[in-house]
Amino acid sequence: SSEEQMCGTHRETKKIFCEVDRSLLCLLCSSSQEHRYHRHRPIEWAA
């Protein structure tokens, strides 16, 4: 659903897949302290 594609923290669309956590992130989350050094892919890659 579209609600699942929205970041609850930043209200941004989740467009990035974190390979380490195997989760979807928004651009702001992907550059956060928690995920900054993880490997990321565009969401299309994970589909």
Rank of each mutant, 00 (worst) to 15 (best):
E3T: 05
R36I: 09
C18Q: 02
A46I: 01
R22T: 02
P42S: 10
R41G: 07
I16K: 09
E3G: 10
S2E: 09
S30T: 09
Q5C: 03
S31W: 13
H10S: 03
G8C: 12
F17I: 05
C18N: 08
S2R: 08
S31P: 04
E44C: 04
C29I: 00
L27V: 14
S2N: 04
E34D: 13
A46Q: 11
I43P: 04
A46F: 09
C29H: 06
S1N: 15
A47E: 06
T13P: 15
S2I: 12
A46N: 10
Q33H: 09
R41F: 08
R11T: 10
L28T: 15
K15S: 10
D21L: 04
F17R: 07
S2G: 10
T9V: 13
C7R: 04
E44I: 06
C29T: 01
Q5A: 06
G8R: 08
H10C: 04
K15Y: 10
E19G: 03
R39P: 08
E4A: 09
E4L: 08
R41P: 06
K14L: 08
K15M: 04
I43K: 15
L24Y: 11
W45S: 15
W45L: 14
C29D: 04
S30L: 06
H10R: 02
C26A: 01
R22C: 02
V20H: 12
G8L: 12
C18W: 00
C18H: 01
T13C: 09
T9I: 11
Q5R: 11
R41Q: 14
Y37W: 09
G8K: 12
A47D: 15
R36G: 05
E44R: 04
F17M: 11
R39A: 11
S23P: 02
M6S: 04
H10P: 04
R22Y: 05
R39N: 15
E19L: 03
C7Q: 01
K14M: 09
C18P: 01
L24Q: 10
R11E: 02
A47W: 10
E34C: 04
H40Y: 01
R41D: 15
E12L: 13
I16C: 06
I16S: 05
L28F: 06
A47M: 12
C29A: 02
I16W: 08
L27P: 14
H10M: 00
R22E: 15
M6N: 00
S1C: 01
L24D: 07
L24W: 11
L28M: 13
T9A: 09
E4Y: 07
C7H: 05
W45V: 15
V20A: 14
D21P: 00
A46P: 15
R11G: 11
R11S: 09
L25D: 02
G8F: 15
W45G: 15
H35S: 03
E3V: 07
H38Y: 02
L24A: 12
C18M: 02
